[in-house]
Simulated scan of single mutants.
Amino acid sequence: MSESGDQTKREEEEPDTPDFEAESDDSSDEGEASGDSEMDFLRNLFSRTLGLSPEEKVLDDLSLEGVARYIQSGKCKNIICMVGAGISTSAGIPDFRSPGTGLYANLQKYNLPYPEAIFQIDYFKKHPEPFFALARELYPGQFKPTVCHYFIRMLKDKGLLRRCYSQNIDTLERVAGLEGEDLIEAHGTFHTSHCVSLFCRKEYTMDWMKEKIFSEDIPKCDACNNLVKPDIVFFGENLPARFFTTMKKDFPHCDLLIIMGTSLQVQPFASLVSRVPNSCPRLLINMEKTGQSEFGMGLLGFGGGMDFDSDKAYRDVAHLSTCDDGCLAFAELLGWKGELEELVKREHALIDSKDSKKKDEKTKQSSETPEKTKVAEPEAGKSEKTE
Rank of each mutant, 00 (worst) to 15 (best):
L227S: 01
C327Q: 05
M1R: 15
G298L: 09
L103Y: 00
L183M: 02
D25R: 13
S310P: 05
D311N: 11
E55D: 09
F235I: 04
R174S: 08
M247G: 01
E387P: 15
E30C: 15
L64Y: 05
S98D: 04
H319G: 01
V276S: 00
E56P: 02
C254W: 00
L272R: 00
K249R: 15
L333T: 01
L155V: 05
K109R: 13
G381R: 05
I259A: 04
T373E: 13
I169M: 11
A349E: 14
G92M: 07
N106R: 11
K126R: 14
F269T: 01
F199L: 15
L59R: 08
Y70G: 03
S274N: 15
L138P: 01
V317E: 03
G236S: 06
L42K: 12
L256T: 06
L42G: 00
K374M: 11
E3V: 12
K312I: 12
T146D: 05
S356T: 13
L107Y: 08
L320H: 02
E11A: 12
Q120W: 11
N44Q: 15
K362Q: 14
T369F: 08
Q72I: 07
D207N: 11
E12Q: 14
I118M: 04
F234T: 03
N78S: 09
P277N: 08
E137Q: 14
R163G: 02
E137P: 00
K109D: 12
A318M: 03
G84T: 03
G177E: 06
G31H: 10
H348Y: 04
A68G: 07
K144G: 03
C76K: 08
Q167V: 07
T290Q: 09
E21I: 10
I213C: 08
E288Q: 14
N106E: 07
L340K: 00
K75I: 00
E347K: 15
H253E: 11
D255V: 06
Y104H: 08
L183S: 05
S356E: 14
C200R: 02
S293P: 05
F124Y: 12
E13P: 01
D19C: 13
S367A: 11
E368D: 13
V273T: 15
N78T: 00
N226K: 13
K144M: 13
S88I: 06
A105T: 10
L45A: 10
L45T: 10
A380M: 08
C195M: 03
E387T: 12
L283A: 06
I93H: 00
K382F: 14
D311E: 12
F143L: 02
P54F: 01
